[in-house]
Every structure is written in structure tokens, then in C-alpha cells.
Computed example of a mutant assay.
Amino acid sequence: METRPVPSFYLYGEPHRAVAPDFVHAELLDDRSRPSDWTILPHAHADLAQIFLLETGGGTMRAEAETFAIHAPSLLIVPPGVVHGFDWQRESTGAVLTASIRHLNDLCASYPDLATVFDRATVQRIDATRAALVRAAIGDLMRELGWSAPGHRAAVDAALLAILVGALRTVSGASSGVVAAPGHHSALVARFRARVEERFRLREPIVAYAAALGSSESRLRVACAQVAAQSPAAMLDQRALLEAQRALLYTNLSIAEVGYSLGFADPAYFSRFFTRHAGISPRGYRSAATWETNARRAGTGNPPPVPGIDAA
């Protein structure tokens, strides 16, 4: 188990640096996967979101503590900050879209329903017709990014919007009956999530978040229920749990130290918090994750199912 933090890259293998507000990038899957022998080690992108289109082949995606099986054709969604890695089947083909979360937020301000695309990391099968449409939009984007001509920025955004719409309809289902939340609710929840990301270690009460956002606690609760189908407190606890899982998986911090780093002054209270939300104690979670990793490396098969560790 490593003591150093999970690497944070700009693009995979490139040192982290400030992301331009309008950054958009597209490349073929094997541009980075082939030189890495089709294995992309766990890493994160602080300010970038990604959409992968897998056209042929397959593999597995690890996103935080979950493992997803991938079968082509599929779309893979990776929100910013999510620790993720891949084991691709050799000669898999596809493409990768990477975009600044600030630029995506600007687009979502005009089209609020698109914000749900990056609610969580996921792998979704995609039908051949929609896969062809997304692939065509990625092709348009790659060509437009390779040169500059009148209307360049508009053409980039047009291709980007086409990809996002394809992802939205794949993730939510074109006829699922899901109604987009009003734009002001989406904007408030986006601001709440950003503040949670900055301050979740402080364990501040929800009323303090609402006040800082210029909202009432009841209005924030309604917005979170409509946009995220969760209460603000549940979203805050979910973020703290995610960080605890990362620390247990990727560091040698003691369980008490993990709790202290997340604002829990009492290790016993942290242990109860983790067990209540993950369905397993911090010690059991770490032991099961270590067993799984060793089993995969040794090729001895999958570990027994444990709550909070999904092996798809």
C-alpha cells in the first residue's frame, strides 16, 4: 500500500498544471493506452472531466472503490477529481474527450440538464446508432481542434454539445421520463458542490453552507432533492466518505489519522460514521481492498463480495 497520494495529472502522464478555462481536447484511445501497455494506473484530474467512447474491445474501469466491466460499444463518464484507472483489452479502439469543468459549467448554464452527465462515474452500453453519432461528433471536434478558421470556437462548442447530448441520452435514457430540474436549482447545487469540495474537511453544518451561498437551508434542501435526489447533508457525508475510502485504499494513514484529516476529533465517532455509510468498518474495508488487490495481482480470482467494494 502506497504512502504517496494518488497522482493528479493534466492529461495522463503529463504533470499537473493550471487548466485554461476553455480547454477542450480529443484523442484516440490508443494514443496513451498503447504506450502504457493498455494499463492506465489510478490517477485523477482536478479540473477536467472526461468522456470515453469505446468502439471495439473492452476491459475494466476502476473509479474510486468501484470496478466496472466494459464491453464495446460503451460510453464511460469520469467526473473531475475522481480517481480512476483502466485495464484495456489489447487493440481496443475508441476516443477520449477531455474538457475543462469551467467550460462545461458555462455550457450547462445555458443548458442545465447537461449538468447531470457528470453526476457520477459510470459505464453505459450505447446502441450502434448513438455510438456512430457520438463518434462523428468527436471526429468533427478533433478536426476543428487541429486548425483555426472563422467560427472555430463556435464549431468546437457545437461538437462538444453534440457529444454531451449523446452522453446525457445514454446515461439518463431518451424516454426515461426524467425531467430536468429548473436552471436556478441546478446552479445552486453546482455552487453547493463546489463549496463542499473546498470545505468538507471542516465538518460545517448545512446551515453554514446555505448562508454562505445566499440561500435558506430549506431552499438548498429542495434544490438538492430535485437535482441530486439527495439531501445536502447526505451529499456532504458522501464526499467525506469518498475521501475516507481513498485514504484507506491509497495511503498508510492509520484509521484515526484518516478521521482526523476529515475533521473527526473522535476516532470512534469516525469509525461509526464510516460503518454506517459504507456498511463495513474502516479496518474491514481496508483489509478487503488489500485482499482484492493482492488476489488480482496473483490471478487467484475475485474476493468475496463486501459492501462498499463493487466488483462488476
Results as ranks from 00 to 15, higher is better:
2 E>P: 10
3 T>L: 08
8 S>M: 10
8 S>G: 10
12 Y>Q: 03
12 Y>S: 09
14 E>S: 10
19 V>R: 02
21 P>C: 05
21 P>W: 02
26 A>V: 15
31 D>W: 06
34 R>D: 09
38 W>K: 11
38 W>L: 11
41 L>F: 10
41 L>N: 07
45 H>N: 09
48 L>D: 00
48 L>K: 02
49 A>M: 08
50 Q>T: 12
51 I>F: 00
58 G>F: 10
58 G>I: 12
59 G>V: 07
60 T>K: 11
64 E>M: 08
65 A>W: 01
72 A>D: 11
78 V>F: 00
79 P>W: 04
79 P>A: 06
80 P>I: 00
81 G>L: 04
83 V>M: 04
84 H>P: 04
84 H>R: 06
89 Q>C: 08
89 Q>Y: 03
98 T>N: 01
101 I>M: 15
105 N>E: 14
106 D>F: 05
107 L>A: 01
111 Y>I: 14
112 P>A: 06
113 D>S: 09
114 L>E: 06
118 F>Q: 05
118 F>A: 07
119 D>H: 13
120 R>M: 07
121 A>L: 05
122 T>P: 00
126 I>C: 12
128 A>P: 01
128 A>Q: 15
132 A>C: 07
132 A>W: 00
134 V>C: 03
135 R>Y: 00
136 A>H: 12
138 I>F: 07
144 E>I: 05
148 S>W: 03
156 V>H: 00
164 L>I: 03
166 G>Q: 05
173 G>T: 10
173 G>Q: 11
175 S>R: 13
175 S>G: 01
177 G>K: 08
179 V>H: 11
179 V>W: 01
179 V>Q: 15
181 A>F: 05
183 G>L: 04
184 H>P: 01
186 S>L: 02
195 R>C: 01
198 E>D: 12
203 R>T: 06
207 V>Q: 08
208 A>Q: 11
210 A>E: 03
222 V>F: 04
226 Q>D: 14
229 A>E: 14
232 P>E: 04
236 L>H: 13
239 R>W: 00
241 L>W: 05
241 L>F: 01
242 L>M: 12
244 A>I: 03
246 R>L: 15
246 R>P: 00
247 A>G: 06
247 A>I: 00
248 L>I: 07
248 L>C: 15
248 L>A: 15
249 L>D: 08
250 Y>L: 09
253 L>H: 14
258 V>L: 07
260 Y>T: 11
260 Y>W: 14
263 G>S: 09
267 P>M: 10
271 S>W: 02
272 R>E: 15
274 F>N: 11
274 F>I: 11
275 T>F: 01
275 T>S: 15
280 I>F: 04
284 G>E: 08
286 R>F: 05
287 S>W: 01
288 A>R: 13
294 N>K: 09
297 R>K: 12
299 G>Y: 10
299 G>L: 02
302 N>F: 10
302 N>Y: 09
304 P>F: 09
306 V>N: 02
307 P>L: 10
311 A>Y: 12
311 A>H: 13
